[in-house]
Each structure stands twice: as C-alpha cells, then as structure tokens.
Amino acid sequence: MTEKPAIKVEKLVKRFGANTVLSGIDLVVPRGQVTCLIGPSGSGKSTLLRCIAFLEEANEGLIEINGEPLGFTSGEYGERNRLPAAQIQKVRSHIGMVFQQFNLWPHMTALGNVAEALVTVRGMPRKAAEERAMAQLSNVGLSARAGHYPSELSGGQQQRVAIARALALDPDIMLFDEPTSSLDPELTGEVLNVMRELAQSGMTMLVVTHEIGFAASVGSKIVFLDHGEKIVEGRPDEVFGKPRHERIDQFLDTYLDRGAATLL
C-alpha cells in the first residue's frame, strides 16, 4: 500500500454546463510530501481540489485515494460505476480540507468546532472529544482561545482552528484551498507557519496557493494549471528556475508583484 500514491487523478474532466473547467487532468500526489497547485484565477484549481474532496463530481475520469477508488470505479468497458455513499464517506475520511473562507460553524466555540465531528461522527464521549480537541488547538497555538466563538477570532485564528478541526479527525491527506487568500499579510504568516510545521511532520498535503514563496520553499512538487489543463509539473527549482516555461513567466509577471518573482 505504501507504494501507492496518496492521490492519483486520471483524465479528470469537469464541466459546468457548456463550460469545461477541467479538461483531462492527470495528477499524482506522492505520500508524505507537499504538492502545490498554482495557476491564474479561474484556471480550475479549486474545482480540481473540490473534485478530489468529492464536493464536486467530475464528469469523466477517476480518482484514487491511497489506491482506493473515490466515488466511481471503471467498469469492464471503461464506463464509470458509482460507488455506494458509505464507500465514498469511508474513502473521504482519509482527507481533511481547509477552505479559503474558513467555514467554521458560527454557533460553536473554537473547541466545539474541533470536537464536534469526534462526537457526532466518531461517537466519542464529549469529554474525551474535548480533550483531544484541546490538544489539537494547542498544536496550532490556540488553547487560550478555545472558548471563543468564530466571530470573536481574527481571520488567522479562525483558519488555524479550521486546520485543527480537520486534523482532529486524523486524516492522512490534507487539502488546502488558498488558505491565506482572505487574510491580511500579518495573519498570513501565522497560518503558513502552522502549515510548515504540518509539512515537517510528514503530512501529505495538496495546497492551492498564491504564496509563491511558500510553494517554492515548502513544496516538493509544483503543478501549474491554466485553462483547466496541467501545463507544467516539477520540483520548485525546475518550475520557477530559469529558463522558465513561458506561461509561468507570464503568470509570475501578471499575478504577482515583480519583487516576489525576482526573489526566486
């Protein structure tokens, strides 16, 4: 099982009506590493991530998580067969997801957010769940804020609670969709630090980000998406180093300030 990649995506196609957002993506996310997904706005990064989380159903193609098919298997004649909901939930339980908008439940405290699934889904007693949640919160440096409601926390703190909430369920793969895009620069740092520590602990991560510095320093693999296609894939030095693919050059010029681009 260990030789199987954490995530394997094959010929994934996703359409919204007549709009083809992903046109045949192949992707392998190796275990224990950080893979960063970059690309211009609207290129389909979020859609790809949401397909991998099964929040969105792809129209064609297959996804495997730890070697197990997610949602669909390919049949004898190449057709896709839908798997039962329980199977989908089981495969999905390997994945934790962190959203750009945090998506903390506003009617629960930070501690409640982290403990909730342990109680409701895993059936743990509330007290044990809260102990475990507390440990997760202190891992992200927020034990002092456990009793606060999301509306009483800064964006950076909310996002760290969201990370703790995902980690509490012991996933072996973490998906991040632009986790720092709605944060001020000062708050971005604290979230990126938590992610860095997580990467060092050997977590398999797939990160959609515009933080090229983070991608270059923490990512083992960079995947560049444009118009729903994978354009470039490789180690950060291969992707960002010169000579660069012309689209990457354009992307760095257009979407980032030149200062950041020349740092690389």
């Binding site: 339980s93 994945i95 997801m97 903390l104 439940w105 369920l169």
Partner: peptide, 30 residues
Amino acid sequence: VPRGLIEAANMCGFSPAATFRRIRLPIAVQ
C-alpha cells in the same frame, strides 16, 4: 446557511441527518 458550512460538515464525515441536526437547523433557526 452558507454552503461552505455544509461542505465543511461533509468533509468531517457528517451524515445528511447529522448535518441537518447539528449545523443547518441551529443556524437557520437563529
């Protein structure tokens, strides 16, 4: 009720019934 809150519950493995009881209902009532 923002869709993201329900998606977060999905990602945490909530059943539809649990999502309704623990997330959608209390927020909608408020």
